[in-house]
Structure formats: structure tokens, C-alpha cells
Computed example of a mutant assay.
Amino acid sequence: MTFRIARPLVASGAGLALLAALGLGLAGSASARPADAGSTTVSPAGHFFAATLNGQATFQAGSVTVTCNVSTSQPDGTTANNQIPAAPGNANPAGPVASSVNAPTYSDCSANLPGVTVTVTTSGVWGISMQNGSPITATMTIPQGGLVLQTTGLAECTVTAAPSGTASFDTTFTNGAPSQFAVSGASVPVTVTGGFGCPTAATTSVFNATYSVTDATDSTQQITVGS
């Protein structure tokens, strides 16, 4: 997945993970849906799920590119985060089904400049809202300030996602073994601070990525979305 920071407008291109994850949001949060939205059922009811990055997450800011090879959001065993609602809450006759999600983690990150260290910190409760359709959509929400990327060394920059409030964007969900959601050209507001080499005029970031969604309660089953 690749994030491209616009100067100052959204740029087209690739890039997930660092500003999304995956990007996810608060329980019950979702983008506005039309009044005639179709029915949605997420299965298996009550099961926990995990989301794991497929490939790499690449964050691009000007000439600096940060690549993370690992990103995941896992249930914690103590909260209802990363859990499909129990029946009948896993079904909605006229709209999406939402779940809260633990903030994804990012590791094994590097930059394309020598002597630069990258740190990605996430926080808060994120979320995902599934809407059946053709295609199936999954609206992700990141809480205010829920992701901060910092580089130190030759370029010392701080990129903060959703700096003024929660930010949501749509992804495409595909049933499978495992099921996946893909982010394509999604935009998230950011602020960038720092010195020389930092794209401080940037106000948005565009990213793409793919995550596998697996059943953490019963590995023999799949997380699916239907009517």
C-alpha cells in the first residue's frame, strides 16, 4: 500500500497502511448511506476477526519514501474490538453493520534515505462498517490523531493523520478464503511538521492497500458479508 502526500491537493497514486489501515473507526461510525441501502449480514455472528496487511505499506512524502512490511489489527481478548456483533446485531435490513477495531500496528519500517529512522505510532479505537452490495464496501474510520508517523535523521518530519477529527473512507470488501478489503485512491487529511525535506504544505494523503481478514475465533471459517 502506498500513501502519496499532495502538495497541497490530493495526488493520485498508491499507498495504504500508514494512514489507514487499514485502516478502521469508532463503533457505529460510517459514511453517509443512501436511504435505500440494501440489507447487510456479517458472519459468523459474534466471532472475532483479524486484519493483516498483504504486501508492503509505502508512505511517500516528496522524495522520501517509508516502507513498512508488517501491519496488523488483532483482537485483544478483553474488549469487543475486532468482533462481529452477536445476532441479531450482525444483520441490518437497510444499511451497514459496524464494528470497533483495535488500532493497527506497523513494524519492519525503513526509509529510502541512509541514516533515517522511522517510527509509526497508532492510538485510539478505530472502526469498520460493512455494507453489502456490488461491490461490497467497508467504510473505515480513523480517530482524531490516531496515526502519527515520525522520521528522524536526515529528514525529521511528523505526519499526523485526521488532525482535526475522525476521518472516514470507503474500501472494497471481497468474500474469500481469506476475505480481503482493498483501499484504492482513498484520501485522509494530514498535517506535516518538520524542517528541510518535509512536505509541510501537504493537507491530504491518498493511499491504496490490501488486507486479509481472517476469523480469529474459528480458523476453519471465513468472515463474509451478504444480504
Rank of each mutant, 00 (worst) to 15 (best):
S100D: 08
G195H: 10
Q222K: 07
A11I: 06
T65I: 09
Q56N: 15
S164D: 15
T152H: 10
N54P: 00
S134Y: 04
A111E: 12
L18G: 12
L147F: 01
A30K: 02
V190Y: 04
Q74H: 03
N90D: 05
V206N: 14
D108E: 11
G145P: 11
A182R: 15
A167M: 02
T172I: 15
G226M: 02
T79D: 08
L113F: 14
S73F: 05
P189C: 08
L147H: 01
T151H: 12
S129A: 14
D218L: 00
V148G: 06
A45P: 04
M140G: 13
T193N: 11
P199H: 09
A57R: 03
G197C: 08
Q150R: 15
T174L: 02
G165F: 07
T220P: 00
A138Q: 09
G133K: 04
L113G: 09
T220M: 00
N208L: 10
Q131T: 13
T119N: 13
D36Y: 04
S212Q: 13
T191E: 07
S100M: 02
N102W: 02
T105F: 01
M130F: 15
S29D: 13
S63T: 15
Q180M: 02
T224M: 05
T72E: 14
C198A: 11
N175Q: 08
S123L: 02
P199E: 11
A80C: 00
N112S: 06
I223W: 05
P88S: 10
H47N: 12
I128M: 13
S31H: 01
G77S: 12
D218Q: 04
S184D: 15
